[in-house]
Simulated assay, not measured.
Amino acid sequence: MKRIFATTTAILLALGTSAFAANSITTKGVSETGNTLTVPMVKANADGYLVIHAMKNGHPVEPQSVGHAAIHKGENDNVQVTLDHPLKRGQKYLAMLHKETNNNGTYDFGKGNTKVDTPMMANGKPVTKTFRLSANAAGMSSHKTMSTHKATSGKAMTNGSTNGVAGMSTSDQDMDSDAK
């Protein structure tokens, strides 16, 4: 028994903690400068993308996104997402993790192409986090805590499609895989 424990411990130490990184997105402290959104921390168990979606009527507008950035397996600090346009202050947005599935290094998920670079999942649901930006006195961006987003089967998406992603609805629990 002691030998099994010692062997298991040695394997875990050899692999390191990044081999078991929980998928998560930290939006506290998110900021925007021009067309660049900076997300403080993203943890991923595979290479992929941090994708930003607009929200409409409490649901993400999918499969279209307003920006994305490549992420690597493990911890990613200060992920800079190039946006199609500056975000609107006070509007809710959704950050979602996608995995690189076709090994071409390009984010390909989108309208008419939802079978590649699909969302990273935790407990059968996409890993997401909602946020909104608000202007402070100095004109800088600051994070405002929002209810988070959870996939719920049977709910229609904003665009009426369920192409490759389960329907979405708003919830009060993060879909970070390490959320309890």
Rank of each mutant, 00 (worst) to 15 (best):
M121N: 06
P86H: 01
A22P: 04
N76H: 03
P40M: 00
A138T: 15
M41Y: 10
T170M: 10
T128S: 12
N35D: 10
L13I: 08
K125D: 05
K144A: 02
N57E: 14
P126L: 02
S141E: 13
G29K: 10
Q80N: 00
V79I: 03
K99E: 11
A135T: 09
S141V: 01
E62A: 13
Q173R: 15
T26Q: 02
A179S: 12
N113V: 03
D174M: 15
I4H: 11
I71F: 02
M96S: 12
T33Y: 09
L87P: 02
E100K: 10
T26A: 09
T148D: 13
K155W: 13
S161Y: 08
R132N: 12
G90N: 10
D77K: 13
Q91I: 07
M121W: 01
T8K: 00
T26F: 06
A22T: 07
G124S: 03
G29P: 04
A22L: 02
A122H: 13
N57Q: 14
G48I: 05
G34R: 06
G160N: 09
T106A: 06
P119L: 04
T130M: 12
V127A: 00
A122Q: 03
H59A: 14
S18C: 11
S141H: 08
N159G: 12
M146A: 12
T148A: 12
L94M: 09
Y49P: 03
G67H: 05
M96V: 11
L87K: 07
M1D: 14
M157Q: 08
A138E: 15
G48Y: 00
A46G: 08
S24H: 11
S141C: 00
K129H: 15
E75C: 00
A69E: 02
M41R: 11
L97K: 01
G112W: 02
P86S: 01
V116C: 00
K56F: 15
A54M: 04
G16Y: 01
I71K: 03
P60C: 02
K2A: 14
V39H: 03
L94H: 01
A156L: 15
M121T: 09
G110D: 05
